[in-house]
């Protein structure tokens, strides 16, 4: 059962899946509550364009992935503001633009490159020592920053307009959050892949959102779901020789299904809505009489 601990690649896969599970799911809380799910998907595709360019010109794929995703995030903001477009429109433009670039770069390679497809679909068992160190550093920095600015992000999530009016540096913090999302996506690419990384960011947070009204508890639950799914997914992948990214995402999707089906919060909300409608009706009939 535990023979895998003798294999270095399995230990690296385990540690990296835990780290990616925690950092993605914690970042995901801020993505979900700020309504940035679509922008995250755009970042993943931009990062993939960077990876493919890296393989094409023989430069570090991860470094170019970081550059592509950060530039895309900033351009999405800029085009949205200058062009007076809704954010989803400018994301849609860059989403397809960067995917087109990725396909173009793959086409220019003229030969099949298995590593590129590793980034597309994820390959936990292929995580190297250098990859692991990078994941560790990025996870530590991102989690520290989120802890330091937790109360400011809490205010922005609840009411960005009032937070800014109260003197909270909302512009800088929003840009910092987008940068953290970009970097988190990039370091997670190798483990879960472009297509699935965003499921690991959004789904644990969305599952936690079903269970609590507290942002702090949501962070804790999301991290718990993210790591649990990563561990179970990795085990299933090893045991049944299945793609690790897919087993992780399928596991977290099952967790989401359970949380939604048994959400006490949803039931409370339905009850509260019913009760407040009855109260309003009673009040109105009192006023009328």
């Amino acid at each position: 059962m535990l023979e895998w601990v003798h294999y270095g690649f399995m230990v690296r896969a385990l540690i990296s899946s835990l780290l990616v599970g925690v950092v993605c799911s914690v970042v995901g809380v801020f993505v979900v509550t700020r309504g940035l799910s679509f922008i995250g998907a755009g970042i993943a595709h931009a990062a993939f364009a960077g990876v493919t360019l890296g393989f094409l010109i023989g430069f570090s794929p991860l470094a170019l992935a970081v550059v592509f995703s950060l530039v895309t995030v900033w351009l999405i903001q800029l085009v949205g503001k200058k062009g007076q477009l809704r954010l989803d429109v400018s994301i849609g433009i860059f989403f397809s633009l960067t995917m087109a670039l990725a396909i173009l770069f793959i086409g220019l390679m003229r030969s099949y490159n298995a590593e590129v497809y590793g980034y597309l679909f994820g390959n936990l068992l292929g995580v190297t020592r250098q990859d692991l160190i990078l994941i560790l550093i990025v996870s530590a920095v991102v989690l520290t920053l989120l802890t330091l600015f937790f109360k400011e992000y809490e205010f922005i999530i609840f009411d960005a307009e009032v937070a800014e009016a109260a003197g909270i540096p909302t512009g800088v913090l929003s840009l910092l959050l987008l940068t953290m999302i970009a970097v988190t996506v990039v370091v997670s690419l190798k483990a879960v892949g472009v297509i699935l990384v965003f499921a690991l960011i959004v789904t644990p947070a969305a599952s936690a959102y079903q269970l609590t009204h507290s942002l702090r508890k949501m962070v804790g639950l999301s991290a718990l779901f993210g790591t649990t799914a990563s561990l179970i997914g990795l085990f299933l992948s090893y045991r049944f020789d299945l793609p690790s990214g897919a087993t992780i995402v399928l596991t977290i999707s099952v967790i989401f299904g359970l949380c939604t089906a048994f959400s006490p919060k949803r039931k409370q909300c339905e009850w509260t809505r019913l009760e407040s409608t009855e109260k309003e009706q009673k009040k109105m009939s009192n006023v009328e009489s």
């Binding site: 609590t212 919060k265 509260t272």
Partner: peptide, 9 residues
């Protein structure tokens, strides 16, 4: 109704 945060928060 699903908004995060208690009254005190």
């Amino acid at each position: 109704p699903q908004s995060l945060g208690s009254v005190l928060d």
